[in-house]
Amino acid sequence: MHCFESADGLALAASIGGNPAHPPVVLLHGGGQTRHSWNNVFDALVAAGHYVISLDARGHGESDWDPRGDYSLDAMVADLRAVLHHIPSAPILVGASMGGMTALAAAGEASTSIARALVLVDVTPRINAEGARQISAFMRGNAQGFDSLDAAAEAVAHYLPHRPRQADSSGLARNLRKRGDRWFWHWDPLLVSGNNHAQALTQARLEAATRALTIPMLLIRGDKSNIVTEEEAKHFIALAPTAEYLNVQGAGHMVVGDRNDAFNSGILDFIKRVQRR
């Protein structure tokens, strides 16, 4: 594990792979996830010859929790910019959900180009309100933790009924912390209360960021997503007519976990074409 330091002194955990002289890719996970949600993508990108940085956002995984509870879009963007200072050339930014919002704002509002290309994973400036409420409800639930990894797996299976439940729940240990005899999700509860990321976002801000971008962009959507409907995807393409669009069949909002094979194929093909340009 590697640690970067944010502008306000928080430690930001990251996994880093590949040769720093190779084209860089930065992976930004969604709210309530950790950098490990990208593990298969991370390995595929390194194998394809990229320098890859997969970051735990503040308040997630092994990164510090903000003592002030600041998980605003501005804070997330500032963290990303602090990390980019340590990367030798402009990377391709890949962001899922919350991470996509962070990448979009950072790239679209920068005075000089900070990214070579942008991949948004099931997120656009306009998201489905009901889907967002469902995510918030899941993150607010089980505040008292779980008595076992199997109990946590049951909660995930209830939230994602379309995804086959794994026979072995041990992999969930990367997304939980054990305190005493109970397991708790690996995120700060303040993420979904007070000054949190979702409340700080504005559609107008992200739409303006989208219009400002001239770099190659790819929107990857899960066709069963309750966050980015086909209507929201069309709205994004209207804002960015040159952006590419990949609709992954059989995937929900968690596209990477639902259809990792299709996701990897799509992103590797896009990145290969970006490099040719």
Rank of each mutant, 00 (worst) to 15 (best):
C3E: 15
L10P: 10
L12G: 02
A14E: 03
A14S: 08
I16V: 15
N19L: 05
P24V: 06
V25N: 01
V26I: 14
H29W: 05
G30Y: 04
F42N: 00
D43N: 14
A48D: 14
Y51H: 15
L55D: 03
G59V: 07
G59A: 11
E62H: 14
P67F: 12
Y71C: 00
S72C: 09
L84E: 01
H85S: 10
I87L: 10
A90L: 13
L93H: 10
L93S: 04
V94T: 02
S97D: 03
S97K: 04
G99T: 03
G99N: 03
G99R: 01
A105Y: 01
A106R: 01
A107M: 06
G108M: 06
V121D: 00
D122T: 09
P125E: 05
P125Q: 07
R126P: 00
R133I: 00
R133Q: 14
Q134D: 13
Q134N: 13
R140K: 15
G141W: 11
A143T: 05
E154A: 15
R163G: 05
R165I: 15
R165H: 15
G171F: 15
R174H: 15
H186K: 14
W187R: 04
L191A: 07
T202I: 06
R205W: 11
L206G: 04
R211D: 02
R211E: 13
I215A: 08
I220D: 00
I220M: 14
R221E: 02
D223T: 09
N226H: 11
N226F: 04
T229R: 13
F236R: 03
L239W: 10
L239V: 06
A240D: 04
A240N: 08
Y245M: 11
Y245S: 12
N260H: 10
D261Y: 11
N264D: 12
D269M: 02
F270T: 00
R273A: 06
